[in-house]
Simulated scan of single mutants.
Amino acid sequence: MLYPGMRWEFLPPPEAARRVLHLAGGADGQLASRRDAAATAVSWVHDPDKLVPTATNLWSLLVAEWPDYRATTDRDDVLAFRGEPQTEALELAGPVTFHGTVTTTGPEMDLFAFLLDLEPDGSARFICRGQQRLTATDPTEVTMSVGEAGYVVRPGHSLLLMLCSSDYPDFIPLTGTTERWWFATSMRPTTQTLEIGGRAGARLELTVL
């Protein structure tokens, strides 16, 4: 029973450890144990007229439907970073956190991060997700929760991190202008840029057993 003033706290098991995967490979999109030595920038476009679709009919059906994101990861307005196939089971057991530096050509940007299980047949299944709205007209460091994962990535499967700037209709998108969606008379695409490689390159922090 939860009493007033109490709250649930989900803590990793005491034997859990931190594992860091670096976003690497430039346009090839890799999750790697070592970062690229040279810093580079990768970009994607948020177009309010061509929004990234929500994968399910209702957010509450995400686990029940367990949708396949493979078509979404192939979109031009999405970045996808793939890890190597697992040689043994990888047990995720706690917080997943994204660290990176982003910039947008718009007044604001939405950053959505999906951690997916890339199966040998090419399907990409949901593990966890996070999102944050940012004012990033100048390079902006972001530390964002991608949720809590209790999941086993089986041998032959790979982790896949998908980044995008809309998830419609679950989230009302930005217009690319200072106008809010409900009252907007115009919309325009914006470009988001992420730094990878180098000392401050983007990375994903996992809690594993």
Rank of each mutant, 00 (worst) to 15 (best):
L92R: 09
R125N: 02
S186F: 12
E88I: 03
V146T: 01
L118A: 02
L90V: 07
E9R: 12
E141G: 14
W181T: 03
V63T: 11
P95F: 13
G201S: 03
L58P: 08
A71V: 08
P14M: 13
R18Q: 06
R7I: 01
T103V: 10
H157F: 10
P53S: 04
E108K: 13
G83Q: 09
P120Q: 01
P169H: 12
R129Q: 14
P13F: 15
P107C: 11
M144I: 02
I172E: 12
V102P: 00
S158P: 13
L21A: 08
V96L: 11
P13W: 14
D167Y: 15
P107K: 04
V45F: 06
G198R: 00
Q192P: 03
E15T: 06
D36M: 04
G156L: 11
L51Y: 05
V96G: 12
K50R: 15
W181S: 02
V142Y: 10
T40E: 14
G198K: 00
G150N: 13
C164K: 03
L62I: 14
H157N: 10
V152D: 04
C128Q: 05
G83S: 02
F10R: 05
P53N: 01
G197Y: 05
D76F: 08
T101R: 14
L160N: 02
L92T: 04
G147H: 06
H22I: 00
T137F: 06
P189Y: 09
H46V: 06
A124S: 10
A64L: 15
A200R: 10
T103R: 14
R82L: 09
L204A: 05
V142R: 09
I172C: 10
A32C: 05
L118T: 09
V78Q: 11
R129K: 12
L116D: 04
R18I: 09
M144N: 07
G25N: 03
L159K: 04
D68H: 10
P13M: 10
E91I: 01
I172K: 11
